[in-house]
Amino acid sequence: MNSSVSALPLSSLNCANEALTVRLPSSLQLKQQLPLSTALSQQVTAHRQAVRAILNGEDQRLLVVVGPCSIHDPQSALEYASQLAGLANDVSSEMLLVMRAYIEKPRTTVGWKGLAYDPHLDGSDDMAAGLNLSRELMLEMIRLGLPIATELLQPMAAHYFDDLLSWVAIGARTTESQIHREMASGLNLPVGFKNGTDGGAAVAVDAMRSAAHAHRHFGVDSQGHPAIIQTPGNPDTHLVLRGGHHGPNYDETSVASINAELKRVKIPSRMMVDCSHANSGKDPLRQPAVFNDVLEQRLRGDHSLIGMMLESHLFEGCQPLSASLRYGVSITDGCLGFEATERLLLDAARRLASHR
């Protein structure tokens, strides 16, 4: 992979309290440098339609968004993607697997912010190289036949990748943000809003209602100029349950309560359960237990549970960012290893098939 689109320094200001400004390529420039072919564009469109069909109940398969918490090493990410593509074919009758291609990492305070921000893992924050590398990596995953997903954290970064994605998450910290709701209203693809960090669904329900409406808002056009953006509204949103400060919210009672609220405000009852985060007590090895509990609810007839999310990498666990990293192990949240992920999904596919 190369990083041929480089940043252009504008000015280095002398005052210590003034910001250093560095010009990045526009999203149009990067898309021209690393274009999506017509064939792959049609593939992305088909994948988006497949996700929509699951959301609308037209496709009874389970939607599973699975992959590393965040990508830090392109080589291990592509190895994971290659293995996932094979597994996706094996379970395709019962599940649609979408790979997590998360290149931004939300932070409560400070820390490594993701591949798009710091691709060299050294604090140099070479974002031009990060954007280039991230787009190139996503294109390679799409060439493997995979639909891909990411969490859109920085709205300005979204334009560099919006043509490649089949599903998008808006995180627990940003679901309440008007800016992210406006952004989601203009995305031509399905969006999952996570419940707030307190575990309540009200913020995400409000976000879905907001994103369904047209908006005019401040933004940046494809050439990098400030612009008024007019959005059409996005009908393809849903709720992602990720638990909260008081514990999980995937249990049958919580799901029934949230379903009742969705029906009260006349929003389609469709939910994905994030098997990580507070739902697993931040223990990645508890994800299969969460997954199987939700699967049982679905097998008992609750088809508002349209999918699950798993944090998974080549090998289980996590490691701190250092000069000597273990290959295929997350440097952010802990992950389930691929072998355990494969066993879990193959078993789930057999159980789903037996209940047809």
Rank of each mutant, 00 (worst) to 15 (best):
residue 336 L to H: 07
residue 205 V to P: 02
residue 57 G to A: 01
residue 114 G to M: 06
residue 166 S to F: 14
residue 1 M to K: 09
residue 269 S to G: 15
residue 186 G to L: 07
residue 311 E to G: 12
residue 319 Q to G: 05
residue 57 G to Y: 04
residue 141 M to L: 03
residue 11 S to G: 14
residue 159 H to F: 12
residue 282 K to G: 02
residue 3 S to G: 13
residue 99 M to Q: 09
residue 186 G to H: 11
residue 31 K to M: 12
residue 74 P to N: 00
residue 274 D to K: 11
residue 295 L to S: 07
residue 202 A to T: 15
residue 313 H to R: 12
residue 254 S to I: 01
residue 138 M to D: 07
residue 27 S to V: 08
residue 11 S to E: 15
residue 126 D to E: 14
residue 116 A to F: 00
residue 336 L to K: 04
residue 7 A to R: 10
residue 217 H to A: 14
residue 130 G to Y: 06
residue 249 N to T: 03
residue 323 A to E: 13
residue 285 L to P: 01
residue 302 D to R: 15
residue 42 Q to S: 08
residue 112 W to H: 10
residue 217 H to C: 15
residue 333 D to M: 01
residue 198 D to A: 04
residue 203 V to D: 15
residue 272 M to H: 10
residue 195 N to E: 06
residue 127 M to R: 15
residue 44 V to G: 05
residue 59 D to K: 05
residue 164 L to G: 06
residue 218 F to W: 05
residue 67 G to T: 10
residue 109 T to W: 01
residue 47 H to D: 14
residue 352 L to E: 03
residue 148 I to T: 03
residue 170 I to L: 05
residue 53 A to L: 03
residue 324 S to P: 01
residue 309 M to D: 10
residue 212 A to C: 10
residue 208 M to Q: 08
residue 224 G to Y: 03
residue 302 D to A: 13
residue 150 T to K: 07
residue 92 S to Y: 06
residue 258 I to E: 11
residue 221 D to V: 05
residue 287 Q to A: 05
residue 77 A to M: 02
residue 253 T to E: 14
residue 230 Q to W: 07
residue 289 A to W: 04
residue 25 P to T: 10
residue 200 G to K: 11
residue 98 V to A: 11
residue 354 S to I: 08
residue 274 D to N: 03
